[in-house]
Design a protein around this nucleic acid. Sequence first.
RNA 1: GGCGGCGUGGCCGAGUGGUUAGGCAGGGGCCUGCAAAGCCCCGUACUUGGGUUCGAAUCCCAACGCCGCCUCCA
Length: 463
Amino acid sequence: MIRLFDSVRGEISELQLRDAGEVSMYVCGPTVYDLPHLGHGRYTLIWDVARRWFTFRGLEVRFVSNITDIDDNIISRALRDHTSEPVVAATYEQKWWEAMDLIGVARPSQVPRATQYVVQMVELISSFLDDGVGYATSDGIYFDVSRVSDYGLLAGQPLDSLRAGARVEANDEKRSPLDFALWKFAKPGEPSWPAPFGDGRPGWHTECVVMSLGLLGDGFDLHVGGFDLKFPHHENERAQAVAAGHTFARHWSHSGWVMVGSEKMSKSLGNFTSLTDLVEKTDPRAYRLLVLRSHYRSPIEVTPATIGDAQRALGRLDTLARRFDLSALAGPSLEVASEFTWGEGGKALFEKVGGFLDNDLDTPSAVAALFEAVSGANSAADQGDDALAQELARAVNALFGALGLALLSTSHLVDETSGTLVAERDEARSLKNWAEADRLRGELVALGWVVEDSPSGTQIRRP
RNA sequence: GGCGGCGUGGCCGAGUGGUUAGGCAGGGGCCUGCAAAGCCCCGUACUUGGGUUCGAAUCCCAACGCCGCCUCCA
């Protein structure tokens, strides 16, 4: 049984699946007009972890995440860069996938692009116009939120209280400030699609509802995204689904943001660090570990200090991988628990960690338990209990793999010069010529190696 | 103004009323020729003020500070 915080109920509740053994989830993807930043990195990592865990648990996961390849931001970016919208979208979509690959986020099962669903969007909007739920203004077609009785469900407050606080918008043709654009009429030079109610382009909220329902169907299991999408984006998606007579997501969940100092990282504040920049400077796995060590609904701060902390903690895991010669798990492919042979100690760890993860994706507790098991494995090995040590180490490796974190035991390629120095040092040590041994160690360190003695002699690796 | 969240040891970060979270950094020890790695031990934290309770970081009330959503936003 998997439990997850539900944003509508406001409490942790059991994930009631539409079809037994199968999870259908939709993650609002990026609008591709700029490089992905740490905030994008965080939500993609979190939902990647959730997906991997569900899969590891033996569930069949249909994971749909869209690409918004037409919207106002893309249009202004194309203008700024003196190029076309399709070029902007293609360029930054590629950057997106490059970043996802670097941080080890598995590709979605399906990736719908908004421009491929315009026909269905036009149909939906037409039906809204027929029903009077949609209405035209001089610049587009809008959705009348008052027509959905429980509008405000995601916001957690009723329509009138939202309206009271709503800021005034420029467009006074709207019946309510909360009404949102289903369709924007094309201005000269803007990309547009034909529609009986006037050529133009779809609104963001309409894109997502059409793609999620179109691919996953009525009453799909789980709709997720960052907290800031809860309202109005998700509210408006749902409003359209309900108005069109569909059952929408059974469960909603939202992830916390990345903080910069005491502010939320966001495009509009301009205080973002690109994901590409981060992973160029540090091991991308450190970011995943940092994300795993805090709860997905809490804000996190990504600073040189916190990322360095994670980097060193990661070092401890890689040391385990070296000591036990573990081969890296986790990659583009997803792991399944039933394919492992756990052993008694490993099985106990799996159950403990699984208990945490099944309970609202409690990765901090899971990671803590895994680090305890790292000590357990090392300790067992120090005391000569190799069987237990191996079992624990393998289980740790498998479970981190299940969370998408690959432990690396890579013995870096040793060049001839360094190899000779190692051999000479071992020779010197066997002759108890400590001065010479230390001198040779110094040379290796100068070449950038970390030098460690082991029962089988000098071991070198890159830091 | 409405709604929601947060305030934990040097730092990060979990904590479901009572027993060690975990990591990083630091100190001591074991091991080691010396190191490194590993193992063991250590700091004894919970914004403030009340209250409930045999007992509260954990529940209630208040205060202070901080953040988010209500507008494009992951």
